[in-house]
Design a protein around this nucleic acid. Structure first.
Lengths: 360, 360
DNA sequence: TTGTACGCGTTATCAC
DNA sequence: GTGATAACGCGTACAA
């Protein structure tokens, strides 16, 4: 255990105290600013700290103080471009109040989600943010006895230690579909997300609702199953053609699905939007760089992430918070186009051009 | 401090011991399997654990044992699609050996990088993986005295506690450029990455080297400055046109840059690859879904991440590791096309079609 | 095989 | 203001 040159020379608070000729408590006080100390001692300690390059042991500190300044963040996968923005927002929002996020992925698996939650509790995180968690509500309540929980993209029975920030997928999908209808489309296909995803179901519902509200009627034939991934969109689009159904527009449950669908259209030599209009959902950073730029429903993920970070911190500090559902907004770009007998007798409506949106 | 129904009912090892009628050390032994215990006691303890829903306090455990089973992962930004794959690989690779990654972003800022390193050390992580870190080598060596370091995308003086896994950007860029030359291109523009990024410089060098090797010669006029982001690619491409230089192909320092450049081409009504060939670098998951699918240099990021995870674990266990530089491979898709007087007297070469590549 | 006692590095509660 | 002293929850020699 002696210094062989390789052993980490981790200095302790006690050694600093000895070097500075004060007691450990004084050093601790200076470190935390928890009380006034004579300037002379203050200086001596600071010099010792600098000299030995002392770094307080976070674990010991947490063990003694009972708080870790750590927030567990349960995401489905760190690698999805969609979650990435959320994580960035959370990280940024947590930075200023001095908390560190602990990101883990559960791979869309409820069992994994629960084991990750156990890990969080074992690590004594001060709070937890869950993204699209599928854990049942009873378990959430149980977990919330250990640390405040903030659930994103879902609605649960709120309490002082369990909050939720729902996202209005239904409204977003309805707006998008209505936009296509307004542009004259009647045969609008839909490529759905995973059957067991709450938000995927809501988006399907929004699509259906808009159709019915407009008197167009919902046609199951026009719906194909996707999986929120590019491959799924690609295959679903292909099946739509193989089945021979006719349509002038396609609404995809998310942007990645739209990317896949767009490739199938390209393969088949169909133009977007001249032949087929295309709409996505999420507004991923790259969607404004699709060819042509994708019309989609924007989810302000980064901002939501920041909101969530601020929210969980407030909960930890036992302050009350109120979270109103996040509204989504349609971003009209260039993959949609008016179709059919135009109400106004224009000859060839020029394709609209919205300015390219900046990506951070 | 009494149970008011809200206080986290965190059971301790000692309470388990009392409930099971054994000593704390016995419980500890059972938890860690560090010694044989009478089946009867074993069972009693396990029942108590289940009954009280006991979860060992990770902090206390780490403080006592001196290891945290945690790996600090310093990334530049969690939100980049490029890093996302690395992180996923790292997380997966760390899972089996029982380590937890601690992801933090330094936002391409050396000062942030160093403060994050301090945090890692303060948290007593068992090892650290750095992605594209710009910290000077002397500091790295200093940090490596506290925990083994593995540096990705860079080459440093290796030791038993400091390893690096270089990525051969130069070779990748050279291959890509050579491919364009082979296809008959002579005027090949290049949109560079940030001036202070080592890999960006290497890619520029590879481009230049290929040109010189082929006797085409390097022309500074054909080089524009980008920033590895879509906006940068968009603007750089635009400047290329404004400056009036002529070219038949564009090689972008990374895929995101290519996305931006592609949009400018679209805006100007130029077809890819019929009018201009386009090549990227990285092979992001969405690049195979670009319209048309992007020819690019593939970096096996996920696999590199797994390799890194395994590597750092070995270093922690004081096993020797050997990391050979990662070769990159050109993936020929549909944004490049033969040009000019074709050596073989074909009339109109049909655009090549590679099968769409799966994403994860 | 099992229990006791101490240490891990801090914070917090006391007196002084 | 400052310094002992006792937690914090667990691992682990050491002894039994």
């Amino acid at each position: 255990m002696n210094d062989d040159g390789q052993t980490p020379p981790n200095v302790t608070l006690e050694e600093i105290a000895r070097a500075a000729g004060v007691s450990p408590s004084t050093v601790s006080r200076i470190l935390n600013g928890s009380a006034r100390v004579l300037p002379a001692k203050q200086k001596a300690v600071e010099q010792a700290i600098a000299h030995f390059n002392y770094r307080p042991n976070v674990l010991a500190r947490s063990l003694a103080s009972g708080k870790t300044d750590t927030i567990g963040v349960l995401t489905q996968t760190v690698s999805s471009p969609f979650y990435a923005e959320w994580l960035r927002g959370i990280e940024d929002g947590l930075y200023e109040p001095g908390f560190t996020p602990l990101f883990v992925s559960s791979r869309w698996n409820v069992k994994d989600e629960m084991s990750r939650m156990e890990q969080f509790i074992a690590r004594r995180v001060d709070g937890i943010i869950l993204l699209h968690a599928q854990i049942d509500e009873a378990s959430l309540i149980e977990y919330s006895r250990h640390a405040p929980l903030l659930v994103l993209g879902r609605s649960v029975q709120n309490s002082s230690v369990l909050a939720s920030l729902p996202i209005d997928n239904l409204q977003g999908a309805r707006d998008a579909t209505r936009h296509l209808i307004d542009e004259g489309h009647r045969k609008i296909a839909f490529i759905a997300g995973p059957r067991d995803h709450e938000d995927a179901i809501e988006r399907l519902d929004g699509y259906r609702m808009a159709l019915e509200e407009a008197g167009v009627g919902f046609d199951p034939e026009l719906v194909e199953q996707g999986d929120y991934l590019e491959t799924g969109g690609l295959a679903a689009m292909e099946r739509l053609f193989v089945r021979g159904v006719s349509f002038s527009a396609v609404f995809c449950a998310n942007d990645q699905t739209a990317y896949g669908a767009r490739l199938t259209l390209f393969r088949r030599g169909l133009r977007v939007p001249e032949d087929i209009s295309l709409v996505g959902f999420d507004d991923l950073p790259t969607s404004s760089y699709m060819t042509p730029p994708l019309t989609t429903v924007r989810q302000p993920t980064y901002e939501i992430g920041r909101l969530a970070a601020q929210g969980i911190v407030k909960m930890i500090r036992k302050q009350s918070i109120e979270l109103s559902p996040i509204p989504l907004k349609l971003v009209t770009r260039e993959t949609t186009q008016r179709i059919g007998p135009s109400p106004t007798p224009s000859t060839t409506p020029a394709p609209k051009r919205s300015k390219a949106r900046r990506q951070q």
